[in-house]
């Protein structure tokens, strides 16, 4: 039983990390209909900004976290001006290709700026572990789970129950109709990009102590985030969360009780089964029909 719980908690932690990434990735799909493949680099830059602010600038860890999120929000704002705005109205594949190109360029730029060697950040709680009921925890992992639950709840509430959230959804589903209803579509999209980039910064900073900051840190995470988005439902925030959790938990349990050799195979088989019965994911959204 202890082993099962230990593995389950590890799966939930990884699931929350995937959900974090999937959430930010989904936000731009949900709000602007843009599949942003440079999101992996946004996460990576979150890690690098954190290391720079903490290790080079010398800020305390909490201030480095806030600084990282602010820098990433600025990055998202710049991106929507320089990249997304000129691409508005273009074909889906044009935007995907452009974001992949930007992703490659950002990776090379990161090597030039931060060098080729891996970097890391300390956690808020040192590297000690906590024992509870025969289960061993890293306090940092608990922080990730708590933050994920809090953030997902707030986001879900804001997007479904508040005026700005409903405006965002209206913008995503039909920008022309939203514009006719007096919704400032462009401002809504800018807000979505900034929020998505802020989430990327937070994800990059939080996973840095666990993943090690390298130029490819975000890529593997985005692949899992993308898988979570597909399982959960293209453009669905709720789906992104559940998709992330399903993949994280299935991977961990599969590795522990079947074989570590085939854990990815097991996870992707589950995805195929889900898509066979629910081709648009667990929580389908109208936005998916438009992409």
């Amino acid at each position: 039983m202890d082993t099962f719980l230990q593995v389950l908690i590890a799966g939930v932690t990884m699931g929350c990390i995937y959900a974090f990434v999937a959430l930010g990735f989904t936000l731009t799909i949900a709000a602007a209909g843009v599949v942003n493949f440079s999101y992996s680099e946004w996460v990576t830059y979150g890690g690098f900004f954190g290391v720079t602010l903490y290790s080079i600038v010398g800020l305390p860890l909490w201030a480095a976290l806030i600084g990282t999120v602010i820098l990433c929000v600025i990055m998202g704002y710049v991106f929507q001006w320089v990249v997304f705005r000129p691409l508005e109205g273009r074909h889906f594949l044009t935007i995907v290709t452009a974001t992949i190109g930007i992703s490659v360029s950002m990776g090379a730029l990161a090597t030039l700026v931060w060098g080729p060697y891996p970097l890391t950040l300390p956690t808020f709680f040192g590297n000690g572990t906590v024992e509870f009921g025969g289960i061993s925890f890293f306090p940092h992992n608990v922080l990730i789970i708590v933050l994920a639950i809090a953030l997902i709840s707030v986001l879900q509430f804001c997007l479904t129950k508040t005026d700005i959230g409903l405006r965002l959804q209206a913008t995503a589903q039909d920008p022309d109709a939203a514009r006719l209803m007096g919704i400032p579509v462009r401002r809504m999209r800018t807000f979505a990009y900034c929020l998505s980039a802020g989430l990327a910064g937070l994800s990059g900073f939080l996973v840095a102590p666990l993943f090690v900051v390298t130029t490819t840190m975000g890529f593997g995470l985005m692949l899992k985030g993308l898988a979570a988005t597909i399982v959960g439902g293209w453009g669905s925030l709720k789906g992104a969360v559940f998709g992330g959790l399903i993949i994280g938990i299935v991977e961990a349990l599969g590795a522990a009780y079947i074989s570590s050799e085939y854990k990815d195979v097991i996870a992707f088989l589950i995805i195929i089964v889900v898509l066979l019965f629910r081709p648009r994911g667990l929580f389908p959204e109208r936005i998916a029909e438009k992409l």
Partner: peptide
């Protein structure tokens, strides 16, 4: 970046020496 299931299986098997091969990020984890 998570080896919890693998390490628990190794622990349950009662290994007295573990040989690990991988890349730098794997060793940090």
């Amino acid at each position: 970046r998570d080896f919890t299931p693998q390490i628990l299986r190794i622990k349950d098997a009662g290994a007295d020496v573990v040989i690990v091969s991988g890349d730098p990020p794997h060793f940090v984890v």
